[in-house]
């Protein structure tokens, strides 16, 4: 089939960008979207034009590296699918597609379709962990966890950190990403000791980064390749509020007794 691609080309972080049109006369329906770009890049290189830079790695939809907008939808129109798993059989002959990088102040464009998602790592650094040093853990079966809680925690934990939620959100908000981690750990007994501090710090970091604020459009959930639910945002908000009204205890002890 024949396709026309209009691709965002930008030479560097501070260079101006523009859409450039490429014609692809012979796309096979069995190709994945990224394989189509591979073929285009091979041809560009042969013609002496620099290939289109795009992030990708596992091509199995789990590493979260790939992702760009295809005609205005993060990861393209197929639900629960990353671009690396999107196959060309879902497109029509003669279709024109517009490829743009994630656009968010928090994700600066590095080149063409490649953006910097370091803000996500900083949100995790703010508290997206359980502080247990290696070797200190008790037996894995010492604390039973209700199957339902473990299953829902797993739903939250399946986030791949690709950034589609931020890219699609008209507000450029990262609530879904943050909530997924906050909720996963809040649902498990192992996450309880740091529960309140975690939500407070992670939300504070979320606000420090250049993300927008959530107004519950629901776009994030719709484009999430792992179908992470909006319910987790409500869970995070509830924990955040409960923390505000929580009884805070402070120890007055000073120093160790030796």
């Amino acid at each position: 089939m024949r396709l026309t691609l209009r691709v965002w080309r930008q030479a560097g972080p501070s260079a101006p960008g523009r859409l450039v049109t490429y014609e692809l006369p012979d796309v096979s329906e069995h190709m994945s979207f990224l394989e189509m770009l591979d073929v285009l890049n091979e041809r560009l290189t042969e013609k002496g034009e620099e290939p289109i830079a795009f992030d990708h790695d596992c091509r199995e939809g789990i590493c979260g590296t790939c992702g760009f907008m295809i005609s205005g939808i993060a990861h393209g129109k197929m639900p629960a699918t990353t671009v690396c798993q999107l196959h060309m059989r879902h497109f029509r002959d003669g279709e024109e597609l517009v490829l743009e990088p994630w656009r968010s102040k928090a994700f600066p464009v590095l080149r063409d379709l490649v953006v910097d998602r370091g803000a996500f790592d900083r949100i995790i650094q703010a508290g997206g962990y359980v502080a247990v040093n290696t070797g200190t853990a008790q037996d894995a079966n010492a604390i039973p966890v209700a199957k339902a809680d473990a299953d829902v925690a797993m739903d939250a934990a399946s986030c791949i950190g690709c950034g589609a939620c931020v890219a699609q959100c008209p507000n450029g908000a990262a609530q879904l990403f943050t909530a997924a981690k906050v909720s996963q750990l809040a649902l498990l007994p192992q996450g309880q000791p740091e529960r309140w501090q975690r939500v407070e710090r992670m939300v504070a970091q979320l606000e420090r980064e250049a993300f927008g604020s959530c107004t519950n459009y629901g776009e994030c959930e719709a484009v999430c390749p792992k179908g992470v639910s909006l319910d987790f945002i409500a869970m995070m908000n509830r924990d955040w509020l409960r923390n505000v009204f929580r009884v805070r205890r402070e120890s007055r002890a000073t120093g160790g007794a030796g």
Partner: peptide, 18 residues
Amino acid sequence: DQCVAQGVPFAREYGGLL
């Protein structure tokens, strides 16, 4: 043990054990 303590959501039986 270490992974469970970190909050890795391993599959569990209805009794809550791994």
